[in-house]
Design a protein around this nucleic acid. Structure first.
Lengths: 137, 137
DNA sequence: CTTTGTGCAAACGATTTGCAGGATG
DNA sequence: CATCCTGCAAATCGTTTGCACAAAG
């Protein structure tokens, strides 16, 4: 999942986004982690050593990345958006104990047929969310 | 899904909740609708004719109902919690156009085996979320 | 009567916005 | 050099809380 600086820059440019240190940092940070951090956590992480980004900038970077489809928003915890740089089809596991979110590979479950939905609903995609507890809990 | 006044009162009592007009109204309102309203929408609805409940009361009623398992919180829209009086196992359809949320009966999809999750994850339940557009969109 | 619920207004936390400077393509 | 981005502070929105009063069991 970790990519070279050049690749990241090319990806951002290919989506028409100007490459700034802050935006690069947000996206690179997200690509480098396997958890699903909140905007606040990313901000903390980026400013751990030295201040590099402001709050508003992190929020707007995430918005831009989401708008161009490089980042997905995950709504599983009350009150906060969490972010995921994995935009391939996949499912999620949510730990009710520690609120950890983990990706589940798409192939883990057999494909579900959406043919039996009530007529009138036009389905585009689906995903499975599994609730439980993880190792550390 | 609509139940008699008596049944609703008995249900609330059976969960150890004091039956007040406001709490009754919130629960009855939720039972009577098939959409998945926000706290704000319930408040509006209840106070449409005449003011019956305050904002804080609706929020605390929803909290109480959720705590005893009579109501489920649905997190599919950014920034808001929506509520569902259907606490049976079921799936959800989310309309990306109008943000409508609709229940999908559990039997619509074949049961998924959770046996192939990475070892270490203890699954309790799962649910499928289908994204698409609905009739009116 | 004791406990729990209600209502108001103020407090809160996550996210957004307005606007003046700065950096990018 | 025109456009888009950054940072700050103030604003907004959903939700929670403190506290005095009222109602339920």
């Amino acid at each position: 999942m970790t990519q070279s600086v050049d690749t990241i820059i090319k990806t951002l440019r290919s989506k028409g986004l100007k490459v700034t240190p802050q935006r690069f940092a947000v996206y690179a940070n997200l690509l480098s982690r396997q958890d699903h951090p909140t905007a606040e956590q990313i901000l903390q992480d980026l400013n751990k050593q030295a201040p590099t980004s402001s709050q508003a900038t992190v929020y707007s970077a995430l918005q831009a990345l989401r708008d161009v489809g490089l980042v997905r928003e995950v709504l599983l915890e009350e009150g906060v958006s969490r972010y995921d740089a994995n935009v391939e089809k996949h499912h999620h596991f949510y730990c009710r104990q520690c609120n950890a979110i983990e990706d589940i590979p798409w192939e883990t479950f057999p494909d579900i047929s959406l043919d039996h939905l009530r007529p009138g609903l036009k389905a585009q995609t689906y995903e499975v969310t599994v609730y439980g507890t993880c190792d550390c809990c």
